[in-house]
Amino acid sequence: MAEKTVLGMDLYWLNFYGLMILTLIEVLAVGANLDPVAESLGTEEKVITLWILTIIAIPKFIMIAAIFMHLYGDEDSGILTMTALFPAFFILIMVLFVGLTHPDAASSLPDWCRPGTYGL
């Protein structure tokens, strides 16, 4: 782990500040009244919030993985990044095909998988 700098600033400190700011924006976005924005876009406030949260989560994810987990800039970063991306295909299948695309979702699940039949 070599000492890295960006614009003369320590990379790890910079990453840390960046993550803190993004998290602050995330929390503020949930607390803020986004109704006017939602109305102007013809959608619900929750949808706007979800978009903001998703957009912020992506750079946070990359910043932690690339800088803190050394998937960027180290000798073995290339092959380890490939290793980390290997499950991406399976994750896409699970999330897209199981999580999102099933039209009836819970209503067509077998009885044992539905509320009220757990024996609780």
Binding site: V95, G99, A106
Partner: peptide
């Protein structure tokens, strides 16, 4: 990576139920 699959399973379960119910 195996841990990632575990959490993906939990996330996809959440998405399915959240969107389906």
């Amino acid at each position: 990576m195996s841990e990632m699959m575990v959490f993906t399973a939990l996330f996809s379960t959440y998405m399915r139920y959240r969107l389906g119910i």
